[in-house]
Amino acid sequence: MFAILALLVGIALGIWLEPSLPPGLTTYLPIMIVAALDALFGALRAWFDGTFSDRVFAVSFFSNVLIAALIVFIGDQIGVGSQLSTAVVVVFGIRIFTNAAAIRRAVFHA
């Protein structure tokens, strides 16, 4: 209950407060969100498998986000930023679908 409330409150805060993002960070936020989504789906899958741990989830969430941002940042430094961000989105997209498939199997047994 807290978790879903916190999610909604967070979205509301982000929309209402309109935190001004540093201009350098605007290209990374979408990538970070995709990475976070992957962590969320991974956590959900782990929970259905019975192997969920909130500590592991928190650590994996932040490390996922940071590493994704780091990869794109390095890509930007060496001039392949847009390609690498595409690559990150593709990889995370595949992983999200894989996790979603596992969750579907756990929920619907199909």
Partner: peptide, 17 residues
Amino acid sequence: LLAAVLLVFGVGVGTQL
């Protein structure tokens, strides 16, 4: 802990929106 992480995630999504 779950709520804290999701709050951060929510703020990020809201900001991006």
